[in-house]
Design a protein around this nucleic acid. Structure first.
Length: 284
DNA sequence: ACCCAGGCCTGGA
DNA sequence: TCCAGGCATGGG
């Protein structure tokens, strides 16, 4: 009844490298040539780039439809958005869209997204990844795994677990001053005073305000959680890189309202492209 | 040693 | 409303 545990996905706008390097997720890593491994929703998924527009997922059909099709937003048509950007008059955006046309906006677990982006503040991406792995090793569940190079892995911790963690324990994981932010946010989720599933169903504006009520979550982090965890694709996170792009290519002001309803996708192309423009010493 | 990182909070103009 | 400084720590 399970069938073969391989799913080939045909999609012209699904690039593993671009998605893994897009800064949305911190547990999708390259494991070989054209090969990536992802830990999410308590599972490990192997992904292989087969050719231009084919990705092979190491999962069965049931798991695919239950988790990964939504996770990678594969039913959504990114092609038409890219086409409109390519034919638009904004030169920077058309180049950005052309460069990052394989990026997808992920539907990550809301709680993991919330904690991950609380950690992200004032850190670079490699450092964020290291912190998250340490957090998972210390507070997540160990899962035995044969498909994964390196064997078993740790799931992202549950809110109830982190809610009961001690600040000192988190400090040992090099989370710095974010320790109390993480504990308080986890407690809010665990005791029900914030309902992340409800926030994914309500409006972006309401979700944004509710998230900002949590200590350690400001405009930028709230928008990241809204976009990558709650799939409010109108959210437009502004970080140091987006600011760089706005300063350099838009004379200091950019109106994301021109892309009503999908500004977050536009933001993602901008982020990925501006980082590429500034990248030094790394061929690609 | 130095500077910056997918920022946020507080306090003072 | 806007800005400066502090924050805990690792990566480059």
């Amino acid at each position: 009844m399970k069938g073969i545990f391989i799913m080939d996905i045909k999609n012209t706008n699904f690039d593993l490298k671009q998605t893994a390097d897009s800064g949305q997720c911190f547990r999708m890593n390259q494991t070989g040539d054209n090969q990536y491994g992802l830990i999410a929703y308590g599972k490990y998924l192997n992904l292989i780039r087969m050719d231009e527009d084919t990705v092979r997922l190491g999962c069965g059909e049931e798991e695919y439809h239950q988790i990964w099709e939504g996770y990678f937003d594969l039913v959504y048509d990114y092609g038409s958005i890219i086409q409109s950007l390519l034919s638009g008059e904004d030169r920077f955006l058309s180049q950005a869209a052309a460069y990052g046309q394989g990026i997808r906006i992920l539907r990550q677990e809301p709680f993991e997204t919330m904690i991950s982006f609380i950690i992200s503040q004032n850190k670079n991406i490699p450092s964020i990844k290291n912190c998250i792995e340490r957090l998972c090793e210390r507070f997540g569940d160990y899962i035995d795994c044969k498909e994964r190079p390196g064997g078993g892995y740790y799931t992202f911790p549950k809110a109830e677990i982190l809610a009961g963690a001690e600040a000192g324990e988190l400090r040992k994981l090099k989370l710095g001053y974010r320790d109390e932010y993480i504990i308080k946010a986890s407690q809010a989720v665990a005791d029900g005073s914030i309902d992340l599933d409800e926030l994914s169903r309500c409006s972006y504006e309401k979700a944004f305000m509710k998230l900002k009520g949590i200590r350690g979550i400001g405009d930028k982090v709230a928008n990241c959680i809204a976009l990558y965890g709650l799939h409010h694709i109108e959210a437009f996170p502004v970080d140091v890189w987006i600011n760089k792009a706005i300063k350099e290519f838009y004379n200091g002001s950019f109106d994301s309202g021109k892309y009503q309803g999908y500004a977050g996708i536009v933001q993602q192309y901008m982020f990925y492209y501006i980082r590429h423009l500034y990248a030094k010493g790394k061929g690609d």
